[in-house]
């Protein structure tokens, strides 16, 4: 599946908004936003997010732990790599 980085970013933002209780999540999402400290991702949110990403992008995460990704951009990079 070919998908531009911007499109991946938008879809990932949608997922994080759905996973988060914070209505400001969309505004806070930049490539450098830290998932845990800035976007308030907990381990439960992370589990939900990983499921949502797998189903949305039709990919499978390998070797993923709760601490595998530090920033929003790291997740976008991972998805982009998986889709390429």
């Amino acid at each position: 599946m070919q998908m531009k980085r911007e499109e991946i970013t938008e879809k990932l933002k949608d997922i994080l908004i759905s996973a988060s209780d914070d209505p400001q999540t969309a505004e806070k999402c930049t490539d450098d936003s830290k998932l845990q400290t800035e976007l308030g991702m907990t381990s439960v949110n992370m589990l939900y997010t990983v499921i949502a990403i797998e189903e949305t992008f039709d990919i499978r995460f390998d070797d993923v732990t709760v601490s595998s990704f530090e920033t929003f951009g790291d997740v976008v990079d991972y998805i982009e790599k998986k889709l390429s």
């Binding site: 589990l47 990983v50 499921i51 797998e54 499978r60 995460f61 070797d63 993923v64 732990t65 709760v66």
Partner: peptide, 17 residues
């Protein structure tokens, strides 16, 4: 117990699967 011990050292962890 036997099953658990037999898997010591095994990797392949995946948060979801």
């Amino acid at each position: 117990v036997k099953t658990a011990r037999s898997r010591l050292g095994e990797g392949g962890y995946n948060l979801l699967h």
